[in-house]
Nucleic acid binder design. Structure first.
Lengths: 247, 247
DNA sequence: CGCTTAGTTGACTCTTCTCAAAAGCAGTGG
DNA sequence: CCACTGCTTTTGAGAAGAGTCAACTAAGCG
């Protein structure tokens, strides 16, 4: 079924799912929902009875600070599941909101658990996805703690390019990112003004271009050089890394 | 067995383990190892065949940058397991090193998986621990992205106080942290000099004191006020939160 | 008592933030 | 077709935060 293809493509980086598993997943879909930009998919304090899956568009995990500032701690792309094991914690300690128009489905947590109990290959693939999410979180921490503003942005773009590529969202050689500078600033811990100047810096060197909203990366290799990007932490298989290496 | 008590105390925050589970864990211990400060417990690139458990002392997950700088992305305290599901990824994408003298045991990953398959209560408790680790990672990200240096340090200290308290490492009302300023700087993305000035700032206000190495926190409440600390993300049960609320 | 490590302080530089305002760019309605 | 509006991007200037270099002090240890 094409509906869940982004998930299947993503998990195929670890191991392809069998047709039986795919059908079983389709059968336990609880519903499809559309979200507008800025709309919450899950809000801090919500109970964790559903496992959401983004199919189209971009979303973000974020925390809101007492002064109203928003800090993004993860991006969710098509194929990304939100909190497979979330029911282990009673409530969400942060929110998930749409950044662009988003189409998502959800699975009842109980149905998904039941399926994972029967289907060890699926369980392993979802563990893998959870661990990669954690590795991404660690890399973001390294970025904020130790990389310059420019390297921080470049590293983020490299990561997003590879993640998008894995789910078939990179056509040809250029990668286009549908986020505005405020959204990028929230994720990199910069003010929007500094983000603007950082973008300008990369653009002046031809590493990104800004046409029609968002950023476009013409060459992965050139960009990865400015931030010593090492893709190991994404734990993609060799096959998918080769597919991703379109520069 | 008192040996694994830190782990049992930690997991009791989610749900107490049965005696059977405790004995089963003791039986699959693969070995005990001691580490000196600066010594690696696991090194980037290592295969993930063992699951380490810290029993005494402090360790840290860290990444090394091209310029030699070290960024700490997590602290491991007594009771903390390293990468229960690590075998899902082929190699470690970062290192784990001792900060103080450390005593650790390890479980062969295969034995632990087998036990978790039989013992759903244990599996659930370890999932819980993994999810809390991820929540901590997100909070560190919020700290680095959006909090001031002073709030960053205060938030870290509040977190460590509660985590230590949960495993019985806080005696009386004062909490002592056996880390030096360089180690704290590595974890908060500051230079050691700025960490020194930040510590001085908190000390001048009586929020921490420095006697005989490391930091001591006399009052949790006073410190939590300077960083708007909200302990929800640690997902401790009410019982353990009450126990932890010694100020 | 000298050695080593950790903590402290000062001076200076550079990154990044804040405030403020202008410019570019849709979509809307007259 | 054009003014109007709201949103995003861009630019400037000054201030604050944080890093670097360098030197000095304090504390543990053989």
């Amino acid at each position: 079924m094409p509906l869940l293809d982004p998930l299947f493509l993503k998990l195929a980086q670890f191991a392809p799912l069998s047709d039986e598993t795919r059908w079983a997943l389709v059968e336990i879909i609880g519903g499809v929902t559309h979200y507008q930009p800025r709309e919450d998919i899950v809000t801090q304090g919500d109970e964790t009875l559903r496992v959401n899956l983004v199919l189209e568009g971009w979303a973000a995990r974020y925390a809101t600070l007492p002064d109203g500032r928003r800090e993004t701690v993860a991006y969710l792309l098509p194929g990304d599941l939100c909190d497979v094991y979330g029911t282990m914690l009673e409530v969400m300690d942060h929110s998930i909101g749409a950044l662009t128009p988003v189409t998502a489905v959800y699975f009842p947590a109980s149905s998904l658990f039941e399926l994972m109990n029967r289907d060890k290959a699926l369980a392993a693939a979802l563990w893998w996805a959870t661990l990669v999410d954690e590795a991404i979180l660690r890399q973001w921490l390294v970025s904020l703690g130790a990389r310059s503003a420019e390297a921080r942005l470049a590293h983020l773009l490299c990561e997003l390019l590879l993640r998008c590529s894995a789910v078939g969202l990179v056509q040809g050689s250029a990668f286009h990112l549908p986020l505005n500078q405020q959204q990028l600033a929230d994720a990199t811990g910069m003010s929007i003004i500094h983000m603007n100047r950082t973008v300008s810096g990369l653009r002046a060197r031809g590493l990104v271009s800004t046409v029609g909203g968002g950023l476009t990366v013409p060459s992965f290799d050139a960009l990865s050089a400015v931030c010593d990007f090492d893709a190991t932490y994404l734990h993609q298989t060799r096959a998918s890394r080769v597919r991703a290496s379109i520069t």
